[in-house]
Nucleic acid binder design. Structure first.
Lengths: 334, 334
DNA sequence: AAGCGCCGTGAGAGCGGTCTCACGGCTGGG
DNA sequence: CCCAGCCGTGAGACCGCTCTCACGGCGCTT
């Protein structure tokens, strides 16, 4: 039961015959230490197996060396969301070697979301990464005003001065998708859009329109879904009236829904109707036919967000938003 | 630039005209405070927007109110692993309302994995959840010896006294799968097993054998894969020599690989060969035919792990391992 | 030769809480 | 009526680290 108390700075200092201050300098890599003292202290630290106490350090230095990754809408529905998983893992990977810890904050509802502000203020973290925001989310605004370093994933609904965000090029990606259909000689290109209050969905719609305009085409019929497969099925059913020969869906799940409706309607893909999705989820490889889609650099996005956040924490002023390029993944459906 | 310093205990105490100790008691819900004092202090706290400093509290109390979720093998390969995502989200959900923070520790390689021990010792967290362990992982042993509260997901290779784990019933699940095939009147039931050094794979193999034995059958042919789709394809190719009329694959990805091989070989599923997978991944719903499989209570597992960990942190002795029931998800493939 | 500045080091004051202990006032039992 | 005991409160000692400041010693300039 006599749990060996962990060695402290004092322990090390005493064992090395120097002062606490010197040990602290060694630990923090201060240049103002003689090489002999440094070696001595380092040996002692290794010998005693000393590890600095984070709480004490944090208390004294007013830094925590940890950042929060704030998730939203993390309920059972998206429980197995591979995108989320990628963001989380990529973020934690980006932090490896920096000595910065990742604290996961899961705000399931508005009330909890509000409390994130408190949480940050209480000095738990040095900065905040915001994933999967909602359009009306006041949190980024709050954090920016409180001068808390923050980086959000995805373009916010309304521009917020001083808010750094890292987005993928939804407009460009949607253009790629649409251009693919144009290039395939399709003339009646429809779009299954996502919820218009989500910027990613809005941007993809914009890209769709832009590509058609550039190709000198009129806009085709557009149906709106909510990014679920069921909504894709329903949207496709609507679009069938227009007898399209191509469909660009704003995400893969809706594309898969559309695929199902098309098949049920006796339309062959891609012969009768070419189909392009968005996201390149795992499933897209396994549909029949395999889904042509747009890949987003999720890992890059998370990494970039993390880097930008660390820069801000390091004292640099918030820079400009970053938009990362997307890429077409050609498969069989278009 | 004059950043308003956050109010501290002293601030609140002064404003309320009481001592620091009293404010502390109110915050910690001590019963030894008069109702009047309590109300007064609570009002003051609300008025000043006071939030306790976690580092200071942690330093003084030797608690951190946070737990680590240690992941392994979290590289690009499993980046989009929906299981991981589910574990992470479920864990963080289980922590909501407890005031305990989730710190994600991503040990990509052995060296980093070792450092988790240090990390815990330095007092960062009150306890550790271990996900996706490897067979030879010394970490659980280390943590148990260091009397650090720890709960691991999945049964460890070798029993470790005092180690609490939460597993899903792999043996039972495999039995369900195999029994399904027996009940369907299949007589030559093969198995595509996972890596024998993973307990989940070993247990599923055991369940397969047990079900056959109970049904008075001889064991069928077994091929080993590594849980990837490619290995499932290869394993199925091997098994074709035995001309099975049913296959139970130890996970869905291998089942999907097997499906592909079967189709290529001109075998119809389920008419010629019935097929059962394991895990009930999203993809299983979308194969053609849809995959009959076994569902594991991932969310329950994560929640249970968290609860058991909190109990240990609360001072209770480590209890017995928990094994959660699995369930058959009947679809079209068997 | 004297003075200056810099360099390595140590002493000590916080950082913002928790928690033990002491203390005055009140209640209740003998 | 007195004193034991409890209750609510306050004082103050930490928790382990950072960081400022002071100090002695050395090399350099003048």
């Amino acid at each position: 039961m006599t749990t060996e108390r962990q060695p402290t700075l004092d322990t090390v200092a005493a064992a090395a015959g120097v002062s606490r201050a010197t040990v602290s300098r060694v630990i923090n890599g201060s240049p103002r230490v003689s090489p002999e003292a440094r070696d001595l202290v380092e040996d002692t630290i290794a010998r005693l197996g000393y590890v600095p106490n984070r709480a004490a350090r944090s208390l004294a230095s007013r830094r925590t060396d940890s950042v929060a990754l704030v998730l939203r809408e993390a309920d059972a529905t998206v429980l197995a969301d591979p995108y989320l998983s990628a963001v989380i893992i990529a973020t934690s990977q980006a932090l490896v070697g920096t000595g910065v810890q990742l604290v996961l904050v899961n705000a399931q509802n508005d009330a909890e979301h509000q409390r994130v502000g408190e949480y940050v203020r209480s000095g738990h973290v040095d900065g905040v990464l915001l994933a999967s925001m909602h359009a009306d989310d006041p949190l980024p605004q709050l954090l920016v005003q409180a001068r808390v370093p923050v980086v959000v994933g995805g373009r916010p609904e309304r521009p917020i001065p001083g808010l750094v965000y890292v987005d993928t090029d939804n407009v460009g990606g949607a253009q790629l998708a649409t251009e693919r259909l144009v290039a395939a000689g399709r003339s009646r290109i429809a779009h299954i859009a996502g919820p218009p209050d989500m910027t990613a969905a809005a941007d993809r719609l914009t890209g769709y329109h832009r590509a058609l305009a550039r190709a000198g085409r009129d806009a085709g019929p557009v149906a709106f879904g909510d990014f679920t497969r069921a909504s894709g099925e329903a949207a496709m059913a609507t679009l069938l009236d227009h007898n399209p020969d191509a469909v660009f869906a704003a995400n893969d799940m809706m594309a898969i829904g559309a695929l199902r409706t098309l098949r049920a309607a006796g339309r062959r893909v891609p012969e009768d109707v070419a189909l392009v999705g968005y996201d390149d989820i795992e499933l897209a490889q396994h549909t029949e036919p395999a889904l042509t889609t747009i890949r987003q650099p999720v890992v890059d996005q998370a990494r970039t967000m993390t880097e930008l956040l660390l820069l801000q924490i390091g004292g640099q002023p918030p820079g400009d938003p970053v938009v990362l390029p997307t890429e077409l993944v050609p498969r069989e459906s278009a």
